[in-house]
Amino acid sequence: MRAIHRKLLRNLWVMKGQSIAIALVIASGIAMSVMSLSTLRSLQATRETYYQRFRFAEVFASFKRGPLSLQQRVEDISGVARA
């Protein structure tokens, strides 16, 4: 082990109280961050699943009248569930 690393370890040992406190604060911050991100992703996944399960459309398009011949062409558009 190099002398500079020994110095680091000894200095950390001398201030072990502060070192542990700093480590705990950093660990808490990381845990908080992980927890928040997990919650966010979980909520997003739940929303996606719910929308899929109940067939919520992402886009609605309506018009009052159109020729029947258009119906097939609209159904052929990628992603259109129903026309």
């Binding site: 190099r2 002398a3 500079i4 020994r6 110095k7 000894r10 200095n11």
Partner: peptide
């Protein structure tokens, strides 16, 4: 000198 290093380690700091 670095107080947390022995005489040998203080010198080693340079020789390394």
């Amino acid at each position: 000198l670095i107080p947390s290093l022995t005489a040998r380690e203080n010198v080693a700091l340079v020789t390394e």
